[in-house]
Design a binder for these strands. Structure first.
Length: 455
RNA sequence: UCCCCAGUAGCUCAAUUGGCAGAGCGGGUGACUGUUAAUCACUAGGUUCGCGGUUCAAGUCCGUGCUGGGGAGCCA
């Protein structure tokens, strides 16, 4: 099929005698003797307008066309005499590719609530807002690979199915090939042992940092937590870079550079789509993004953060004391009120962090960092990893972890260990940041949440 | 998982103290020679989320279940 994408047609530098456009009808306006048909094909936010003079044959076709139908229109591309668009198609013929019954087609020529559109997740990318979200989502994924390629990081595909039942984060989904309700023991299962969906590629990707140097993984991860918030889903994508011969400061440098790179990239490459969000979704989007770009992030040791929170004239629900994990209200206070920009909190108490984070000289904190951003909360969590075999073994002992289960992980410290650091960034949370979309379910094609697996 | 709120036409919402279930948009039909989510006229459209209860009478009150939203926890 020969067609010109609408994005290309709208960017034309001159008229065209022969053009065929295909897309979905957003609206049709009939007049006596001719009709306007606005088409969108997903290639860009903007529709193209086609003007078609009526003939008996064309009228018969137009009778079958309503909002949502897909059509092919052939004619010429001309400068529009009307206001609102530079180019339009003067149609000579129209072919109806797929009708849409107006009685039942759920998308109307008006704004719908996000809640309603979630119920028709298979059709919502045909709306302006969701089309824009998923174009930006694609561009953001590409930008991540571009960023790491430019910095000469290697892209590692870490496994989705894992046999490590404790990767240091959250409840896991079990993977089995046994019949539902089977009483067979795990050693009769496919892998001969229990298997789960990964919650993080970190332990795997560390092995490759300690081989290839600078690496990253970017793929789906799964959490079986019964979380019901606008910031959590059961299946989400995570970017996890890992650098050999790097410490916590290098880690924070990389994360900050990456966030700024991604925001700049999206502003440069998706101006129309970003504009839609700035206008209709979050009026403070542009100031927020510009604010993130303009200054260095605040770097705040956990112990100082606790002091600030203690002195804050603020009725926190949770009392503040050294050793506790920061609550949502504390995180929001730090980045939205105290510093009004992204904040790294680092050097957390060892008791609230996983075994693999590097012990600091004080013996009570570890080289961990969280990057907190306004509105989203924790966008990134990372650390310098414990590279010293004896310290790592001691930590695992404290936390009741079996060295046998991690024999391959420990081998990386046994043979040629080296300082290294990395972090995990929630891809969808980054997408929420650059679009201003408030609910994570609205930046995923088909979100998976507790009791929801409809598509 | 806990706390709070909501569920009425395809969508977004009204409905006074418990007293005849409504509007806008969308749909259908018609009009209109340049419209921009066109406009104008006419028109159809309801198991008031399910189940049980109180009452002469329930969209409205009570119980329960389901679904959705907000907040919290867990985290990215």
């Amino acid at each position: 099929m020969k067609r010109t994408k609408i994005k290309a047609a709208l960017n034309a530098t001159g008229p065209m005698d022969e053009i065929t456009i295909m897309g979905w009808v957003r609206t049709k306006r009939d007049n006596k003797g001719f009709s306007f048909v606005e088409l969108n094909d997903g290639s860009c936010l903007v529709n193209i307008q086609a003007v078609i003079d009526h003939t008996p044959e064309i009228e018969a076709a137009l009778d079958r066309v309503g909002t949502g139908a897909s059509v092919s229109i052939t004619g010429e591309l001309v400068e529009s005499p009307g206001k609102g668009q530079k180019w339009e198609v003067r149609g000579r013929s129209i072919e109806v590719l797929g009708e849409a019954d107006q009685e039942t087609f759920p998308l109307q020529k008006k704004r719908h609530s996000d809640e309603f559109l979630r119920g028709i997740a298979h059709l919502r990318p045909r709306t302006n807002k969701y089309g824009a979200i998923f174009r930006i989502r694609s561009e953001l994924a590409q930008a991540i690979h571009k960023f790491f390629a430019e910095k000469e990081f290697y892209y590692i595909h870490t496994p989705i199915i894992t046999g490590s039942d404790c990767e240091g984060a959250g409840e896991m989904f079990r993977v089995t090939s046994l019949e539902h309700g089977s009483t067979q023991p795990p050693d009769m299962d496919f892998f001969g042992k229990p298997a789960q969906l990964t919650v993080s590629g970190q332990l795997s990707v560390e092995m490759f940092a300690l081989s290839l140097g600078d690496v990253y993984t970017f793929g789906p991860t799964f959490r079986a937590e019964n979380s019901n918030t606008p910031r959590h889903v059961a299946e989400f994508w995570m970017i996890e870079p890992e650098m050999a011969f790097a410490d916590l400061a290098d880690d924070m440098d990389l994360a900050e550079e990456m966030i700024k790179y991604l925001i700049t990239h999206i502003m440069d490459h998706c101006p129309d789509d970003v504009d839609l969000f700035a206008k209709w979704v979050d009026k403070s989007l542009m100031p927020t993004l510009e604010n993130i770009l303009k200054e260095p992030f605040k770097r705040l040791p956990y112990t100082e953060a606790i002091d600030i929170l203690k002195k804050a004239k603020k009725g926190f629900e949770f009392p503040v004391e050294w050793g506790m994990d920061l609550q949502t209200e504390h995180e929001r206070f730090l980045c939205e009120e105290q510093f009004k920009k992204p904040v790294y909190v680092y050097d957390y108490p060892k008791t609230i962090k996983p075994f693999y984070m590097r012990m600091n000289d004080d013996g009570r904190t570890v080289a961990a960092m969280d990057c907190l951003v306004p509105r989203i909360g924790e966008l990134i969590g990372g650390s310098q990893r414990e590279e010293r075999m004896d310290v790592l073994q001691a930590r695992m002992g404290e936390m009741g972890l079996s060295e046998e289960d991690y024999w391959w992980y420990l081998d990386s410290r046994r043979y040629g260990t080296a300082p290294h650091a990395g972090f995990g960034m929630g891809f969808e949370r980054m997408l929420m940041l650059v679009t201003g979309v408030a609910n994570i379910r609205d930046v995923m094609p088909f979100p998976r949440t507790p009791n929801s697996l409809d598509f």
